[in-house]
Simulated scan of single mutants.
Amino acid sequence: MAEIRLEHVSKRWGAFVGVDDFNLTIADREFLVLLGPSGCGKTTTMRMIAGLEDATDGKIHIGDRVVNDLDPKDRDVAMVFQSYGLYPNMNVYENIRFPLKVRKVPESEHDARVMRASAMVELDEFLHRKPAELSGGQRQRVALARAIVREPTVFLMDEPLSNLDAKLRVSTRAQIKNLQHELKVTTIYVTHDQIEAMTLADRVVVMNKGVVQQVGTPTDIYDNPANTFVASFIGSPAMNLMSGTMSGGVFTGDNVSIAGFDAPDGPITLGYRAEDATVAEAGQGQITAPIYTLELLGDATMIAVKAGGALVSVKAHKEFRAEIGDMVSINIPSSICHLFDAESGARIG
């Protein structure tokens, strides 16, 4: 049983608060992603679970043990870092084997466990090579195998794909997801990349400035962001956010007017996703503005215009053709819109 519980966990350095009153239960075998920008507290949270940082307040449970006072080696967790941390003088086989030697696992078990871990990340043909002879993707797979070979209770992964190029990130991401499914080990994964979070996680924890903003499945967070921070952080592109005024159920702002809301009058922030809107006949949409830019994506054309005090976009058909400066109308029915408090940013509808 590798359920993890964080109860009122905080980390402070003097007056600076790195993590503030973090409460969460991570289920046995769950793949949980901590997501947020640099400095949001996600890596600090992981390091407290690992024992590399001491929690200022609160309790950390792994299984049925409170682990606050346990050394990292006694918490039965395996970490995979952004920097691979391989030993340059050892070949791949010995790098993978090293944790078994340190933990004094009987030598008779070493070969079978190394070969099993190697096979899971497709490294068998590279076992004789030194790290300097490997590509970035291969080195990251060695780091994964070194974590797998320990057969830990918990995997902790701190931005393991950030040093890889785009193509390798996609393939290694798939490998990590499949590994977690096969190994059935509770996994906590830290990233600032919302695509990684959306594709890997059973649940996502979105953090900002040390505070949890929202916890939920990728679909929950994408479809119902709790506030404007989450809305602007999740999605590619992020949710479009426009400032305006609600009056009599009609939202108005620069170049935009959308009717059909049941919301109180006053200043408000309206959000919508580019793929939910459509290009309308001239003058028939809720936004009418000159095209600011066009991006051909292959499967679609992304059109950006200025409206509601922001640069907002709509995903059009791949065959859509126009020029920068041409007028375009965008259809944004009220049913696809999200409403947020103009001051706090909290979701109101």
Score class of each variant (00 low, 15 high):
50 A>F: 03
172 T>I: 14
303 I>F: 01
312 V>W: 00
122 E>K: 14
18 G>H: 09
115 M>W: 08
295 E>F: 08
205 V>E: 11
328 V>P: 00
341 D>G: 06
167 K>M: 10
71 D>N: 15
266 G>R: 09
51 G>R: 03
64 D>V: 05
88 P>W: 07
28 D>R: 05
147 A>G: 03
260 G>F: 07
16 F>A: 15
110 H>E: 03
294 L>S: 03
344 S>A: 06
251 F>R: 00
4 I>H: 03
117 A>D: 02
55 A>F: 07
97 R>S: 06
200 L>Y: 05
68 N>L: 08
180 Q>N: 06
43 T>A: 08
217 T>P: 13
178 N>Q: 15
329 S>L: 01
265 D>Y: 03
78 A>G: 07
263 A>V: 07
134 L>G: 04
251 F>E: 02
273 R>T: 02
237 P>L: 03
33 V>I: 11
48 M>L: 08
345 G>N: 06
142 V>F: 05
285 G>D: 04
95 N>V: 06
226 A>M: 08
272 Y>L: 02
173 R>M: 05
218 P>I: 07
69 D>N: 15
61 H>Y: 14
67 V>L: 01
1 M>A: 14
38 S>A: 07
268 I>A: 12
246 M>G: 02
338 H>W: 05
279 V>N: 03
258 I>T: 01
151 E>I: 08
246 M>S: 03
114 V>M: 02
31 F>V: 08
255 N>C: 09
140 Q>V: 10
141 R>I: 09
284 Q>L: 11
205 V>S: 08
